[in-house]
């Protein structure tokens, strides 16, 4: 897959990353290299291998449906750059 300047622009936008011009150029090359290596991996025959969905061989880790008291709002809102004591406040985001 060819990594173009437009694609890097698009992906950085999706990731909310503001990259300076020289970094964008560097990224173009690096991403191309990473994808080229994926091509190498793709040459391996994995038809008999089950896809890995988790790095540990564990499954069915679950929790019973029992309520534990939540964090207090005061504690919770301490993490907010801006709040009004009840809600988090963010720049206008309603579609």
């Amino acid at each position: 897959m060819k990594i173009t300047a437009e694609l890097v622009e698009h992906v950085s936008q999706l990731s909310r990353l503001r990259l300076p011009q020289e970094e964008k150029e560097r990224m173009t090359g690096e991403l191309e290299g990473i994808l080229a290596y994926m091509e190498v991996l793709n040459t391996l025959d994995t038809r008999e291998v089950e896809p890995l969905s988790h790095i540990f061989p564990i499954k069915n880790v679950w929790r019973e449906d029992e309520v534990i008291p939540s964090q207090t709002r005061q504690e919770l809102l301490k993490n907010a750059p801006t709040g009004n004591g009840e809600t988090f406040l963010v720049p206008k985001a309603v579609e």
């Binding site: 801006t82 009004n84 809600t87 988090f88 406040l89 963010v90 206008k92 985001a93 309603v94």
Partner: peptide, 9 residues
């Protein structure tokens, strides 16, 4: 009024 969005999670 404030042109901000309030978030209730």
């Amino acid at each position: 009024w404030t042109d901000q969005t309030r978030c209730d999670y």
